[in-house]
Design a protein around this nucleic acid. Structure first.
Lengths: 184, 184
DNA sequence: GTGTGCATGTAATACGTTACATGATTAC
DNA sequence: GTAATCATGTAACGTATTACATGCACAC
């Protein structure tokens, strides 16, 4: 259902678009929130037309391009989902899973992995910060503004975690290095 | 692959267990990191036996219980995955997607949704904090310690976001309420 | 004319959820 | 005896990834 809602939301907020354009949005503004490839998007759009949530036109567009527009029913469906349907809070976070598994490695090895993450999330935080600031300086409310802010906060939190964890693992590695007798 | 690694990690860290027990772990310590139901776990364990990553014994156990143990090959596979395989950074976060879509609602409605999240994440932060503190007071390194810390940081970040966003949306709602002429 | 990017689709496979189905053990 | 929990499994369906397949338009 989430993919459908993401597509509906994009069309509602940014106006009519093609399947190709919507797929591109998943690579851009929506990237840190939801992802889908064209092979998922095209069939879903077809189903959404059948369900009356969007309409399609291909009149006069070059390259057989199709243009999708939300209907009133589509807008209502989206509002209903946002306000009435309980969000799924299922978490499946590979970075966190790796964190969970970190302690089965030697501390030095684990520290090296954590250090790699510091860089990744420093970069991601900066990137999202730029996006957020661009959206916030635009005077009127812009779609994606709140999501960008959430993205910054989460990325920064992971970065800080990586920092603290790497330091702790380094200390542990030194401790073990200094007292090799105590290790298993 | 992640499910397989999660199972391997649990078996490596917490010792031999049954499919049932492993499934329970996804409801407990691993819950904020990865999730899987028994209908996914049982077939995967069978495949892992075939692949030589774990061994199974059902001798003398009550209720047809099976006991799975990691093999050396399994441990090696896990270490290889942790250290050599690039983590998938695909994000699919329904809470964040809803944040993205927030601005298509009336500010007052959007604020109400954000306010609901404040409570949810306050609660989740407190819960994880307790788990983390319990793991950290245990003197020697405990599995799940780093993941719990990461969980706390992410939950706290989302909670703060909800706080700030709700406030901003409330202000916007008041602004619009005071100047109804400015609306669409 | 040729490469890049726009634009659409399908097929096979993998991963995940929900529902169905069954039976043993323990606590009351 | 009966309800709860332990314990295992399968089937149907839904969602996501990867790979295959095709063609138009435009810039150089």
């Amino acid at each position: 259902m989430s993919l459908r809602m993401a597509l509906l939301g994009l069309l509602a907020a940014e106006g009519p678009a093609s399947g190709y354009g919507l797929t591109k949005s998943f690579g851009g503004s929506l990237n840190h929130v939801w992802q889908a490839s064209h092979s998922q998007v095209y069939p879903e759009l077809t189903r959404m037309v059948e369900a009356g949530l969007v309409t399609v036109s291909e009149d006069g567009e070059p390259r057989g391009k199709k243009c999708y527009t939300v209907t009133e029913a589509g807008r209502a469906e989206l509002e209903h989902w946002l306000t009435e349907v309980e969000p799924s809070r299922v978490v499946r976070n590979e970075v966190a899973l790796r964190a969970f598994l970190l302690s089965i490695l030697e501390p030095a090895q684990a520290a090296a992995l954590a250090e790699r993450e510091i860089e990744v999330y420093r970069h991601r935080t900066a990137q999202l910060q730029e996006l957020r600031d661009a959206l916030f300086t635009a005077s009127d409310p812009v779609f994606g503004r709140y999501a960008a802010d959430l993205g910054v906060r989460i990325a920064a939190a992971i970065g800080e975690w990586a920092q603290v964890t790497a330091e702790e693992l380094r200390k542990e590695a030194v401790r073990r290095g200094n007292t090799p007798e105590s290790g298993p």
